[in-house]
């Protein structure tokens, strides 16, 4: 469980957002930033492989461009005209959920409290 330590919170923003009640410790944030970077790079790699595979398959696998899945639509056309949008959304939902859950687990937890953002 993360400990609350002397740190920096919302009131430092140039617009004065936030209040003095919530703080994050620098060492906790460094750990969260590292974890988030690892997650983002992992999802980013999946994104690059998926999107890059379409032109690679067009060059390397004739079936990808010449076969017909739906009427005159090749697998390549189906992927580019519809399939990739669904994939982007699924990837985005999964990444956003994981990022939020990491933040909830690693930041804003007070010793002995179950609620990561307790009400007072």
């Amino acid at each position: 469980m993360a400990r609350r330590e002397v740190g920096y919170g919302g009131p430092d923003g140039p617009d004065g957002a936030g209040g003095p009640e919530e703080f994050d410790g620098p060492s906790e944030v460094v750990a969260v930033a590292r974890t988030q970077r690892r997650i983002a790079l992992g999802y980013g790699l999946v994104f690059v492989v998926a999107i890059g595979s379409v032109p690679v398959l067009s060059l390397s696998l004739p079936w990808w461009s010449t076969a017909r899945l739906l009427g005159g639509m090749s697998p390549s056309f189906v992927a580019v005209a519809g399939g990739l949008y669904v994939f982007f959304l699924a990837l985005g939902v999964a990444a956003a959920r994981l990022a939020r859950s990491v933040e909830d687990r690693m930041l804003g937890i007070v010793p002995g409290g179950d609620d990561p953002v307790p009400d007072r």
């Binding site: 920096y8 430092d12 957002a17 620098p26 969260v32 953002v117």
Partner: peptide, 22 residues
């Protein structure tokens, strides 16, 4: 540290969410 914490921390988010709930 101050700037890095503001950019990657969630204190301001929690504060805003708490205010919204109140």
């Amino acid at each position: 540290d101050r700037l890095w914490t503001r950019m990657h921390g969630t204190a301001a988010d929690r504060q805003a969410e708490r205010m919204a709930r109140i």
